[in-house]
Deep mutational scan, measured.
Amino acid sequence: MAEQVALSRTQVCGILREELFQGDAFHQSDTHIFIIMGASGDLAKKKIYPTIWWLFRDGLLPENTFIVGYARSRLTVADIRKQSEPFFKATPEEKLKLEDFFARNSYVAGQYDDAASYQRLNSHMNALHLGSQANRLFYLALPPTVYEAVTKNIHESCMSQIGWNRIIVEKPFGRDLQSSDRLSNHISSLFREDQIYRIDHYLGKEMVQNLMVLRFANRIFGPIWNRDNIACVILTFKEPFGTEGRGGYFDEFGIIRDVMQNHLLQMLCLVAMEKPASTNSDDVRDEKVKVLKCISEVQANNVVLGQYVGNPDGEGEATKGYLDDPTVPRGSTTATFAAVVLYVENERWDGVPFILRCGKALNERKAEVRLQFHDVAGDIFHQQCKRNELVIRVQPNEAVYTKMMTKKPGMFFNPEESELDLTYGNRYKNVKLPDAYERLILDVFCGSQMHFVRSDELREAWRIFTPLLHQIELEKPKPIPYIYGSRGPTEADELMKRVGFQYEGTYKWVNP
């Protein structure tokens, strides 16, 4: 592979701008107003304001973009700056750019259920340069409990009458099928589907988006991507930290609602779906819905739930269990780990287990898709061969690698495990991989909904998990304890083995 010439960040961002501006969906010269509902909250200060700053800094926003914060707290732009700027990672050389960014910011205080507050917000936006005809993007960085009041008031008082209007809704989209349907029906009564952007930030990850290209742009994968060759698929999300004093919020939802029903299920769809007619948003989402419709409700015998306990040999936070978090209700049975087996009941995947695993306070930070292939028929190497695996590593250190057998150097035919490896950090030294939120917010500006969740996708996802969630809430089974920093409950490994996964433990990928 030829040595790549190092590029400056300015040059890299210039390439990104060229890609972005050559499309006809990006209205570079139009006025846009980006409204952050819930501007005083954690999500706004840690993710949304920093993301908008990065896009502005790199010249990736339309030229005439204004940012308006809205929340109940009586704040000023200076207050917003004070709480969000520490997350910007701005350099001293960017000081003038930073001043320009905050000059485009404003803030309006108001209630979430008060019509007069929204009329005041609308008047404020109209007073901005060309504000009355601007395109408006409303980001709901809010708890779902206020979605209905907020969307109703936005629709009645704050819509642009000339430009387009788009609304970005953060997960969780309800707690179960019934609450999700209620919320979807409410929002759909106010906005068209092409105006609604239900954001799952995992769909903005580079390697998640790469799944489609790997599958449908490489001839070698087509013939082997089926039940005849693939023994099982494992989708993993692991965090090495616990709730760390923020367990009160987590306890309301648990690990299945927080990660599995959305992030992991979306990745499953991209692995299992048929080739779409095109890369058009609805063509892709149509195929994802077909996959979900082929999955039956989760069966309790295919589920393992766990909850982390303190590690007596650990240090600091590792010595504390979930129930030691003062914000967690006493005696909570909320799971911090889950392993679930699903089956896609169609011709391509009949009988292939899709194993979804996620948890907190585990032994490493990792998100990946792992396809394990069947054993080689007619073994001539005296059971020395391990199964081939194709691994798409989402985070950290984005990579695609194939675990395969090669001859060990020497005189004899002794096979050993090795890999074919594409590590993004080595291959793409001159490429700026956008943060997931950067990519998705740019998608909203461009009107691309491919990486957002459609209402029928959402409904099918909740259909699969709601009976299990209701059973857990009714019966309150005690989750299996696992030690902070471990791989999780051993019962999860036993479940995976029972459905056909072979864990060798003899080879570990190392970032080159």
Rank of each mutant, 00 (worst) to 15 (best):
L235Q: 00
Y70F: 14
I230H: 04
D228G: 12
W53D: 00
S8A: 04
L130N: 13
C158L: 06
L211D: 01
Q11A: 11
T76C: 08
F241E: 13
F253L: 10
D30P: 03
D181C: 06
E148N: 11
N153H: 11
V146M: 06
S106L: 07
R182F: 08
P172D: 05
A115F: 07
E193T: 03
N210T: 11
L60A: 08
P172Q: 05
Y197W: 12
F250E: 05
F87S: 04
P144W: 12
E93W: 07
F56C: 02
I255K: 03
V233L: 03
L142G: 13
T76D: 10
S132I: 12
A103K: 13
E148T: 14
P86R: 06
F241W: 10
D24T: 07
L128I: 07
D42I: 14
P240N: 11
Y107I: 04
P50E: 00
D200E: 09
D58Y: 09
S29K: 15
E94C: 06
L177I: 09
I220G: 02
N226A: 06
R57A: 03
R219S: 08
V208Y: 15
A116P: 12
F253T: 13
P92D: 11
D42S: 11
R136V: 04
H27V: 10
I36D: 00
R74Y: 11
L60P: 00
V213R: 06
I234F: 11
C232M: 06
F138P: 00
N64T: 09
G41T: 13
P50H: 02
D181E: 08
L98K: 03
V12E: 11
Q195D: 04
E206H: 04
G222V: 06
V12R: 10
I154H: 00
S117P: 06
L75Q: 05
M37P: 00
S180W: 04
E94A: 03
A78F: 08
S73E: 02
N165P: 00
L16S: 05
R81C: 05
E148L: 10
S106M: 08
P240K: 12
N210Q: 14
E85Y: 06
K171H: 07
T31I: 11
P92C: 06
A25N: 11
A103L: 07
Y139R: 00
P143H: 14
H201K: 13
Y70W: 03
F21Y: 05
V146C: 07
D200R: 00
S157E: 09
L235G: 04
S40W: 03
N226K: 08
E99F: 03
E156C: 11
L130D: 10
M207F: 14
R74L: 07
R192G: 11
L142Q: 15
S157K: 07
L43D: 08
E3P: 10
D251M: 01
E19A: 10
V208D: 11
W53L: 00
E63T: 12
L75A: 08
N153A: 09
C232N: 14
P143V: 06
R9T: 13
G248M: 11
A103S: 14
R227C: 12
D58R: 03
S188K: 11
F21Q: 06
K46E: 13
M207C: 13
S157H: 12
P86N: 04
A134W: 01
R175S: 09
D113P: 03
R192Q: 05
L43Q: 10
I168D: 00
K95Q: 14
W53A: 02
F21G: 06
C232V: 03
E93H: 07
V169T: 12
D114V: 10
Y202P: 15
K171M: 06
Q111Y: 11
F237K: 04
T65H: 01
T151L: 06
A116Y: 07
R9G: 10
V208W: 15
I80R: 02
T65V: 10
I80T: 02
L20E: 05
K238P: 00
Q83G: 12
D30K: 13
E94L: 02
G242T: 09
E93Y: 08
F250A: 04
H124K: 08
K205A: 14
D58N: 08
F87H: 09
Q83K: 11
A90S: 03
F88C: 05
A25T: 10
C13P: 06
V77N: 09
A109F: 06
G254A: 03
D200M: 11
A25Q: 05
N210D: 15
F216I: 02
A103T: 09
G254L: 01
I36A: 02
I256Y: 01
G14E: 11
G163S: 03
R120A: 07
F173N: 05
R17H: 06
H124M: 06
K89F: 09
H27C: 12
I168V: 06
L98N: 00
G222R: 12
A103Y: 08
A25E: 12
I220A: 05
I168F: 02
I15P: 05
H32N: 05
F66R: 08
W225H: 01
Y49Q: 00
R17K: 08
A115Q: 13
C158Y: 00
Q209P: 06
S106E: 04
T243Q: 10
G59C: 04
Q178W: 10
S117A: 11
R136S: 02
C158D: 01
S184D: 07
E99I: 05
R166P: 01
L128P: 10
F173K: 01
H27E: 10
I196G: 00
R17Y: 05
D42N: 11
Y107K: 01
G163Q: 00
A2H: 07
I48W: 01
T31D: 11
L55D: 01
L183E: 12
R175Q: 12
F138E: 01
R81M: 05
R166G: 01
R17S: 08
R192C: 09
D200A: 10
D176C: 09
G163N: 02
F250P: 03
N153R: 07
I52M: 06
F191W: 11
L130I: 09
I199W: 02
L128C: 03
D200K: 00
F216T: 07
S189L: 09
I167C: 08
S73N: 03
E3G: 07
L55K: 00
F216W: 10
E193N: 06
G174Y: 07
D100S: 13
E63V: 08
K46S: 05
L60C: 04
Q11R: 06
A78I: 05
I255V: 13
I67V: 08
Y147A: 13
Q119N: 10
W53V: 00
A103E: 10
Y107A: 09
I67D: 01
A39T: 01
T76H: 08
E206W: 05
C232S: 11
Y202F: 12
H124I: 03
S160C: 08
A141F: 00
P240S: 06
I162V: 11
N105I: 11
Y112M: 03
G204R: 15
I36R: 01
K238N: 15
G69K: 00
I162Y: 12
F250I: 10
C13S: 06
P143A: 08
W225K: 01
G222A: 12
I154S: 01
W54G: 13
F87D: 03
D181R: 04
L235N: 00
A90H: 07
F173L: 04
N135L: 02
I167P: 00
A231M: 08
P223Q: 15
V77K: 05
D100A: 12
G242V: 03
F102E: 02
T91W: 04
P62T: 04
R192L: 15
W225N: 00
G254Q: 02
N126C: 08
F26T: 08
D228L: 08
M37Y: 05
D24M: 11
D176T: 06
R17L: 06
L55N: 05
R9Y: 11
V169K: 02
S180A: 03
E93T: 10
L7Y: 08
Q4K: 12
I33Y: 08
R215D: 01
I255F: 01
Q11T: 08
Q22S: 11
S40G: 06
A116R: 09
L211F: 14
